[in-house]
């Protein structure tokens, strides 16, 4: 494993921990999109189908369990926890899941590396992950006051994607690594979705201002 991959995974882990910290400690999920969190739970559930049948490393299995466990527990907190769910901005978080899930599923049926159940599910999870942040970005744009933890959560998620691209470039040159169009293009699309957010994040950081996205 190279340094970019490890840094990417750790950034991903940090993003989840920041979100859990906010929800668990402050007992608030204000500004967090339940739609995005449910999409991530679906992404991990469909991607890690082989978690108990295909062993790669202890690190790999452990991280998969963390991402599965954290994404489902965040959804549980936002839907069921009696204090946390009160802070959920239901009226603002109106993005329709199905508009993302259905096209991703159809695309995975058509464009995949092999037409098998596991392979189609894996491809679906890649396409869905690429766009899963959209409800969250829409919610951020509607929320006039983005709190620090929510801003950091989205920043860390975007950072994780950017580091994965560096990881692929590194692997391409150092390993007998083939071109993985599906993984790379969906990963690139996903990272580009953060470009606008990054711009305003750095802008607010440089000027020491509160993060606000233009309406």
């Amino acid at each position: 494993m190279n340094i970019f991959r490890l840094a990417g995974d750790m950034t991903h882990l940090a993003s989840v921990l920041v979100l859990l910290l906010k929800i668990h400690t402050i007992k608030s999920c204000a500004g967090v999109s339940l739609k995005t969190q449910e999409l991530y739970a679906l992404v991990f559930a469909t991607r890690y189908l082989d978690i108990f049948t295909h062993f790669i490393s202890i690190y790999n299995t452990l991280m998969k369990l963390i991402f599965l466990g954290s994404s489902f527990s965040i959804v549980w907190y936002m839907r069921r926890h009696k204090i946390v769910r009160r802070s959920y901005d239901k009226e603002q978080d109106t993005f329709r899941h199905l508009f993302l899930i259905l096209p991703c599923f159809l695309l995975a049926l058509v464009i995949n590396e092999r037409f098998t159940f596991k392979e189609v599910m894996w491809t679906f999870s890649l396409y869905l992950e690429a766009v899963a942040i959209l409800p969250q970005l829409v919610l951020l744009q509607r929320t006039r006051n983005i709190d620090n933890l929510t801003g950091q959560y989205v920043f860390l998620l975007g950072g994780y994607r950017a580091l994965y691209i560096l990881n692929w470039i590194y692997r391409y040159f150092t390993e007998q690594h083939f071109v993985h169009w599906i993984t790379w293009i969906s990963g690139l699309v996903q990272t580009l979705l953060y470009a606008d957010f990054f711009y305003y994040y750095f802008h607010s950081w440089k000027n020491n201002e509160k993060l606000q996205l233009p309406a």
């Binding site: 991959r5 295909h54 790669i56 998969k64 894996w122 990881n167 390993e175 083939f178 993985h180 993984t183």
Partner: peptide, 10 residues
């Protein structure tokens, strides 16, 4: 092989 190198990622 080719398949494995991507699936070892998260």
């Amino acid at each position: 092989d080719e398949q494995e190198s991507v699936k070892d990622e998260l």
